[in-house]
Amino acid sequence: MSRETLFNAALLLGLIAVPAWAVMTDEPFTITLATRAVILALAAAGLNIALGIGGLVSLGHAVFFGIGGYAMGILAHHAQSYTPLMEWPFLIEGTKFMPLIWLLAIVVSALVALVIGILSLRTTGAYFIMITLAFGQMFYYFAISWSTYGGEDGMSIYVRNDFPGLNTLAPIQFYGLCLAILVVVLVFSARLRRSPFGLALNAARQVPARVEAVGMDPMRLKLVAFVISGVITGLAGALFADLNRFVSPTMFSWQFSGEIMILVILGGVGRLFGPVAGAVTFVALEHFLGGITEFWHIFLGLILLAVVLFARGGITGLVAGKEATHD
């Protein structure tokens, strides 16, 4: 077993052990913190597919996070106010049913990622970053001016949405649900990177000319990666909104896009558990340093600087060394 596998297993076991630890130490708030870390890890796991394997430096992933958030907010808002979403040409009602909310989050994220991808993948480098950033700002300002759904103030959802067989208001159960989704996505990511698609995408990042020369279109590979990536981050947005029972335009903000990217870089770009390591570190710093000083971002900045300068593989690379080749 490689060191990275051990590191990943330790991280996962740590996350699984959080509820027990929280109960033993009688600090239930730890579970909420861990839920936040898990959901952020999920958002970053989405970006990690585009950025880590495909090399797409998207500074607009908050778009999908926000779409997930508003999918939840809008459906739940209509459900709690007993008003239909629309009546014509056919009646659509709000819902408090999580799987339906996730479905909407996924479908809309996929469509938006497709459009943004088609338009922005014509460019590379700094231009790609700028175009994705611009799309993020468009959605941000749209959300601010969308007064039907709270405008700048956002929307509060009073009761967390339902999942069959679970009491989602119990922090442990909601945490378990989020962690299960993260694990499913990580398993999918692990398979994806070894699949024909993953191999081709990985090569499309390194040498697009080669990929073309063997009969595959690097653009199309990257577009599909961008859509998959957006869908995962969108799903994370729906869960994040449910965690806070609150949605606001902040979810669309470019600062949040940057935050997701920081998580990926901190944990290790392209490493399977990089987003998890990054999110856990981030939330821990935010909580502990944030308790000491409100300027904790300075320390985050220093750590990020250190990682970028001295530890290219992020925390994962620091602990587990270079990525092992697989046969």
């Binding site: 999918f188 398979r191 699949s195 024909p196 698609f197 063997v214 595959m216 046969d327």
Partner: peptide, 21 residues
């Protein structure tokens, strides 16, 4: 790298689950 060529020739990189190798 060699598998990449074989994949391209078969024209189907659109598999996301099974291992390429």
């Amino acid at each position: 790298n060699a598998t990449l060529g074989a994949m391209g020739a078969s024209g189907r990189p659109w598999r996301f689950w099974s291992a390429a190798l």
